[in-house]
């Protein structure tokens, strides 16, 4: 039923490989390394097709429809790009994507992605652990949280010209969540540079949290001692919490979170049970020991 899902990143068209040779080589290196080292991080579930991953996106800066990002993100300038890293760090400053995720450090991570709207995908990301970036800039002892900010550029992000949300989009993690080895800054998928609609040139991926936590097209990373307020949390605090861990037992007022629909499963694919922490409980449950996750949703 899903021939496309049998694709691996090596099936990407030659033009793409040619255009993105550098990240392709990095991806190849990562796969070799991955089969030995990072295997514990990647799922062996079949990834969604490149077509599915790049034509079904929530990236509200480009419109609220699932196909708007693919349509309207083409004009986004992602080169040059710099990420401001500030707050409680030893080496604040403006970093390029290559500074943060050099080709030789990029590895492949095949992660499940669970959207708060109760659908899911499997995506072969390329990226670096966020911890490696934070170590590079030197986290100061007082830092407890990491705040992220998306690009604000209404000329290239059409929905930012409307006031439907508070721009720029913001997200945050607790420092231990940010340092967790599963948390990555992604710069590519399927062996090539990240398509614009997926958050080019650099985005966060936190696979045990609902997709909206994985902020796209990042321009600022701030280390702070106070808990950040994320964009959705500020807009609808009753619906979106700071943690937003995937949790089948805590429903969103509008969606049951007990089950999910896997994109690409076909017309009669039905639903599957949603797993606690999106199936990453073994790795991350200890971060939340003693917390009431129904209250801290």
């Amino acid at each position: 039923m899903r021939p496309a899902s049998d694709l691996t990143w090596t099936d990407v068209t030659p033009e793409h490989l040619f255009l993105n040779r550098r990240s392709f080589i990095a991806g190849a290196a990562a796969l070799v390394a991955g089969s030995a080292g990072a295997a514990g991080f990647s799922t062996d579930e079949a990834p969604n097709s490149f077509d599915e991953i790049t034509n079904y996106n929530n990236f509200y800066e480009f419109g609220f429809g699932k196909t708007d990002p693919a349509r309207f993100a083409k004009g986004l300038t992602t080169d040059p790009w710099s990420v401001e890293i500030d707050g409680l760090v030893d080496r604040p400053g403006s970093y390029s994507v290559a500074d943060l995720a050099p080709d030789n450090a990029v590895e492949e991570r095949i992660y499940r992605l669970r959207c708060v709207e109760a659908w899911s995908m499997v995506i072969p990301w390329l990226g670096v652990p966020l911890a490696s970036v934070l170590e590079k800039v030197g986290v100061q002892p007082g830092a407890k949280f990491v705040e992220f900010e998306t690009l604000l550029r209404p000329e290239e992000m059409p929905a930012q010209r409307r006031r439907s949300m508070q721009w720029p989009y913001r997200e945050g993690l607790r420092l231990d969540e940010a340092m967790h080895p599963l948390t990555i800054l992604a710069t590519g998928l399927y062996g090539q540079a990240l398509p614009n609609q997926n958050g080019a040139p650099i985005r966060l991926v936190v696979p045990w949290k609902y997709g909206f936590k994985s902020i796209k097209s990042i321009v600022r990373i701030t280390l702070t001692d106070t808990q950040p307020v994320s964009t959705w949390q500020a807009m609808q605090p009753g619906e979106y919490g700071f943690y937003a861990n995937v949790n089948p037992r805590v429903d969103h007022p509008r969606w049951s979170q007990a089950t999910e629909r896997r994109i690409g499963a076909g017309l009669l694919g039905g639903r599957q049970d949603t797993l606690m922490f999106n199936g990453y409980g073994e790795q991350v449950a200890s971060l939340y020991a003693g917390m009431d996750l129904a209250r801290d949703y």
Partner: peptide, 14 residues
């Protein structure tokens, strides 16, 4: 549905 004109998530479209 049969000509594949529904995009990535036909269930939602339908």
């Amino acid at each position: 549905v049969f000509a594949g004109g529904l995009g990535v998530d036909p269930v939602r479209d339908i």
